[in-house]
Simulated assay, not measured.
Amino acid sequence: MTISERKVQAIRPEHEVMTQQRLPYFIGISGQTVGAQGLSMHIVVIPPGARAAPHQHIGYETGIYVLAGRVCTRWGERLENEVVSEAGDFLFVPPGVPHEAINLSETESARAVVARNDPAEQDKVEPYVVTAAAAPVGQAR
């Protein structure tokens, strides 16, 4: 692609799309929307009390910036570890680490910016079956 073929583009997501993680996303930057070659960036909304389906990302890193709410991210082979992030926090998820995100509020949605170093990251999301029961949220082992 030559410099004359490249252009700066603005994207305003107008509607949500359900992802493989079973969370609504507002699609922003991706290979499909702007021809990105190494980046995707979206807004995720976790409804009150909702959680992502356990999953892992194959071959790409994920950076998350929490805009609103409090989210518990459980991770590990049995989802035995957890970290709570809230508005103003960044979260890093390495490739291949099983995890799930849980909105800790029963009344308010959580919102975050999700950035990945893959322009078609949904193609590389794999469901993850937990091998043993994890501790309840807030009581990691």
Rank of each mutant, 00 (worst) to 15 (best):
V45H: 07
P54I: 05
M41G: 13
P54V: 05
L67D: 05
A53Y: 07
E61V: 10
V44H: 03
G49Y: 03
A52T: 08
G63P: 07
H57W: 05
R51I: 02
V45N: 09
M41S: 13
R51Q: 10
R51W: 00
L67S: 05
A50V: 02
V66H: 05
Q56Y: 14
A52N: 06
Q56F: 15
Y60S: 09
G63R: 11
G59K: 12
L39I: 14
P48W: 00
H57T: 09
Y60R: 09
S40L: 06
H57S: 07
P48T: 02
G59P: 09
P47W: 03
Y60N: 11
A53C: 11
M41K: 01
Y60D: 08
R70W: 04
S40V: 01
G49V: 01
G63V: 14
V66N: 03
M41A: 14
Q56I: 14
E61W: 13
A52Q: 01
H57P: 04
G69C: 08
P54S: 06
H57N: 12
Q56V: 12
S40Y: 04
L39P: 03
I46T: 02
R70E: 15
V71A: 06
I64D: 02
V71C: 11
L67T: 04
G63C: 14
Y60H: 14
A52L: 02
G69D: 08
P54E: 01
T62E: 15
H55T: 09
H57E: 12
R70F: 07
H55C: 04
V45I: 13
Y60W: 14
H57V: 07
P54D: 05
A68G: 06
Q56A: 14
H42F: 09
I43R: 07
M41R: 04
I43T: 05
G63D: 12
I43M: 06
Y65A: 08
A68E: 15
A50L: 00
G63A: 15
G63W: 14
